[in-house]
Computed example of a mutant assay.
Amino acid sequence: MTAYETFRALHHGERPLLLPNAWDHASAAALHRRGFGAIGTTSLGVAAAAGLPDGTGAARAETLALGRGLARLPVPVSVDIEGGFSDDPSEVASLAGELAQAGVAGINIEDGRPDGTLADPALQTAKITAMKETAPGLFVNARTDTHWLGTDATLTGALSRCEAYLGAGADGVFVPGLVALDGITELAGELDAPLNVLYSPAAQHTYELLTEAGVRRISLGSLLFRAALQHAVDLAWSIAEPPGDSTSPVPGYGEVQVLHEDFSRR
Rank of each mutant, 00 (worst) to 15 (best):
30 A>R: 13
156 T>I: 12
105 A>E: 10
64 L>R: 15
130 A>T: 00
28 A>K: 09
134 T>Y: 00
99 L>W: 14
211 T>K: 11
126 A>R: 01
94 S>G: 14
29 A>N: 08
9 A>E: 08
44 L>N: 02
198 L>C: 00
251 P>H: 09
174 F>N: 02
165 Y>F: 14
144 T>D: 11
3 A>L: 02
109 I>A: 07
128 I>V: 09
77 V>I: 09
45 G>W: 03
222 S>A: 15
96 A>F: 08
55 G>S: 13
210 L>F: 07
20 P>R: 11
170 A>S: 08
171 D>H: 11
60 R>V: 04
266 R>D: 12
99 L>Q: 11
217 R>W: 04
122 A>C: 03
35 G>R: 04
31 L>I: 03
249 P>S: 03
261 E>H: 15
46 V>L: 05
196 N>I: 00
117 T>V: 00
13 G>N: 11
218 I>Q: 13
46 V>N: 04
41 T>L: 04
196 N>R: 03
240 A>T: 01
19 L>A: 06
212 E>A: 15
48 A>R: 00
106 G>C: 08
140 V>E: 09
179 V>Q: 11
73 L>I: 01
76 P>I: 00
105 A>P: 10
52 L>Q: 12
124 Q>M: 15
184 I>H: 03
181 L>R: 11
111 D>E: 10
68 R>E: 15
85 F>I: 05
259 L>I: 12
241 E>G: 00
88 D>E: 15
124 Q>T: 09
170 A>N: 05
229 L>P: 03
104 V>P: 11
241 E>K: 13
51 G>D: 01
63 T>N: 04
10 L>W: 00
118 L>P: 08
58 A>W: 11
169 G>V: 05
115 D>N: 13
132 K>S: 01
262 D>T: 14
13 G>L: 08
52 L>T: 10
77 V>D: 06
262 D>R: 15
179 V>I: 14
122 A>I: 05
193 A>E: 05
137 G>K: 10
61 A>W: 06
234 D>T: 12
90 S>M: 14
14 E>P: 05
249 P>I: 01
239 I>N: 02
244 G>T: 12
257 Q>D: 13
214 G>F: 05
151 T>M: 11
125 T>C: 15
106 G>N: 10
224 L>M: 15
142 A>G: 09
225 F>W: 15
107 I>H: 11
72 R>Y: 01
203 A>G: 07
63 T>I: 07
13 G>Q: 14
41 T>G: 04
189 G>I: 07
254 G>F: 13
55 G>F: 06
3 A>D: 12
229 L>D: 05
77 V>W: 05
171 D>K: 02
49 A>P: 02
63 T>C: 10
128 I>L: 02
89 P>H: 07
222 S>D: 15
216 R>P: 08
85 F>G: 02
193 A>V: 02
195 L>A: 08
62 E>G: 02
138 L>E: 09
16 P>H: 10
180 A>I: 01
227 A>T: 13
54 D>E: 12
240 A>L: 14
144 T>R: 08
28 A>V: 04
227 A>F: 05
25 H>M: 14
155 L>Q: 03
43 S>K: 05
126 A>P: 02
225 F>I: 10
265 R>E: 09
7 F>I: 00
